[in-house]
Simulated assay, not measured.
Amino acid sequence: MGILAVLIIPLLVIGISGIVYIYQTVVQVMSKSVVRNKVVVITDAISGLGKECSRVFHSVGARLVLCGKNWEKLETLYDALIGVADPSVTFTPKLVLLDISDLDSVHEVAQEIQDCYGCVDILINNASIKVKGEAQSVSLELDRKIMDANYFGPITLTKALLPNMISRRSGQVVLVNNIQGRLGIPFRAAYAASKHAALGFFDCLRAEVQEFNVCISTVSPTFIRAYHGQPEPGNWEASMWKFFFRKLAYGVHPVALAEEILRTVSRRKHEVFLANPTAKVAVYTRAFFPELFFAIVAAGMKEKHKVLLLEK
């Protein structure tokens, strides 16, 4: 009896591991089959995440329309995809020049996108720009530029492609957002405001188009980190600011995020939040205990200022 009891635990571990492996394999296969032959538009395809999304969706047989504002980089991405692709299971990507912050050209480019295959099944709004600085030091001109790129650009392109999805009663729009669409972090007021606005718009749109079988998905990582390395330490290395905000800065790798976007599309999930435990605690604290959250942020700012004064 004693030997049997000892063996039960490893057998259970092996059994559970096997079930998890089979489940993940089935999900992966289903993800590939759902996306195959679908027309997938990726904005800012030349960014780190854009390249990984292009690779992932191209490898599973999607018909890609890759958008970016630099034609040479788009061609480089095209060559990279074609160079490793199996032509029997993939489609040749189509390239479209698009600066999402140039609102006057978005409608014209949207028509060019639709002309590629006659329709769009999946739109991945990936393009955005960042700015860092004190709120009062960032010019209104730069505020508007951030809002154009991160809010007006994606919604303008979405509105241009949406009628075709509604008429076909099929389609999905994915917004790649950020944790700053949920909470504001000091020195990123313009960026956080644009991400809050975008999240609010797509949350409303989700309810409006659900009856037409159009799915709206938002994917919000903490940050999208570089391929190598960790965030640089700040001048506030020894403060509680380090614990709170440097933990928030440990973002998601572009490869992992691209694979999560594929799963989000295949399972038509409405919302995905990718974050480490510290970031999740911050979001929930902001939602349920706002005064505590504001107190922590204020304390962190005071400590940062003290460190800066000591260094002068």
Rank of each mutant, 00 (worst) to 15 (best):
A256G: 04
V209T: 11
H270P: 00
P277V: 01
G251D: 00
K280F: 00
F243V: 09
G234R: 10
A238C: 12
Q230Y: 09
H270L: 08
A198R: 02
F244H: 13
F289Q: 07
A197V: 06
F289E: 10
Q180N: 10
L310I: 11
P186V: 05
R286M: 06
A258L: 02
G251F: 01
V307T: 14
V255G: 00
G251I: 00
A190M: 15
Y250G: 00
G181S: 05
L175M: 13
E232H: 10
W241A: 11
G184S: 15
H270V: 08
P186A: 03
H228P: 01
S220E: 00
E291W: 14
G300E: 12
F289P: 07
F212M: 05
R267H: 12
R188P: 05
F201A: 09
G251A: 04
E232A: 14
A287R: 15
L310A: 12
A190S: 13
A207C: 08
F223W: 03
R169M: 07
F244N: 08
Q230T: 12
F187Q: 12
L183Y: 09
P221V: 02
K302F: 14
I166P: 03
E303I: 09
E291R: 15
L292V: 11
F245E: 02
V214Y: 12
A192F: 03
A193M: 09
T278I: 11
E291K: 15
Q180D: 02
E211W: 05
P231G: 10
G251N: 02
V209Q: 03
R225T: 02
L175W: 08
G229A: 10
L257V: 01
A258Q: 01
V272L: 06
A193W: 05
L308E: 15
A207E: 12
F202D: 10
R182T: 05
V219A: 04
A298I: 06
V307H: 15
V272A: 04
G251C: 01
P290K: 06
L310W: 13
G234W: 03
M240N: 09
F288R: 08
V173E: 07
A298T: 11
I296T: 10
C204W: 02
Y284M: 10
P233W: 04
F244P: 06
M301Q: 13
F273D: 01
Y250I: 01
I296F: 14
S167T: 07
V174T: 07
W236C: 11
H270S: 11
A238S: 14
A189Q: 14
F243P: 02
A299Y: 10
K304H: 11
I296E: 04
V252T: 07
A298Q: 15
H253C: 00
T264I: 05
S167K: 13
N276S: 01
Y191A: 02
G184A: 13
N276D: 03
V265Q: 01
F244G: 06
N177Q: 03
G184N: 15
I216Q: 08
G171K: 05
N213P: 08
